[in-house]
């Protein structure tokens, strides 16, 4: 316990200390994002993520956006465990045929109003996998997509910036 306290005190708030450039890059965007989310969503934007056949890099970056360095949650964006709690569906991957039903069911399980965000180049048009016999995508042919976050994979700061630009 003492060690945890010591590490905690010595490390301080890592969002500030890990990289000054990164701090400057994210912080103003993030603050704006927070006030927009307060206004438009009544405090918080809840997102449910679904992987429809991504390689895992997008998931890794979405997770990274929630790490203590970027800490997306402090701006009011939560990743939730159930589609029933979600305002938005975040879809990665080119939509494998095996995932089509699961994707649709997840969307149907969400309460209105709801919208869909796609994340990563595969989700836009199938990316490198678009010519495959087993790819059903792109996502926009299956669900109404409101926002796309480009990148392979998009970096955590790109994810934050894209959310901000969309909500503005």
């Amino acid at each position: 316990m003492l060690r945890i306290l010591k590490t905690r005190v010595l490390k301080g708030v890592v969002t500030r200390h890990i990289s000054p450039e990164l701090f400057k890059e994210i912080e103003p965007d993030g603050r704006e994002l927070r006030s927009l989310i307060r206004k438009k969503f009544g405090r918080s934007l809840n997102i449910r993520e679904v992987d429809t056949g991504s390689c895992g890099a997008c998931e890794s970056e979405i997770n990274a956006a929630n790490n203590p360095v970027y800490d997306l949650q402090r701006f009011g964006v939560n990743f939730v465990a159930s589609p029933r709690h979600a305002d938005a569906l975040l879809v990665t991957g080119p939509v494998s045929k095996n995932m089509l039903t699961a994707l649709k069911k997840t969307y149907e399980a969400m309460a209105e109003p709801k919208f869909v965000i796609t994340c990563g180049d595969c989700a836009l048009d199938g990316g490198l996998f678009k010519d495959s016999y087993y790819v059903e995508g792109p996502v926009k042919d299956i669900l109404p997509v409101a926002l796309h976050i480009p990148g392979c994979p998009p970096s955590p700061s790109a994810i934050i910036k894209a959310l901000l630009a969309f909500l503005k």
Partner: peptide, 24 residues
Amino acid sequence: FTHRGVEKLFEGKSCPEALRLAEC
């Protein structure tokens, strides 16, 4: 569930293209 037919996609590709696919 994440089957994307990767091995089939490799077929007919040149090595530099295939390398990019291998990364994904």
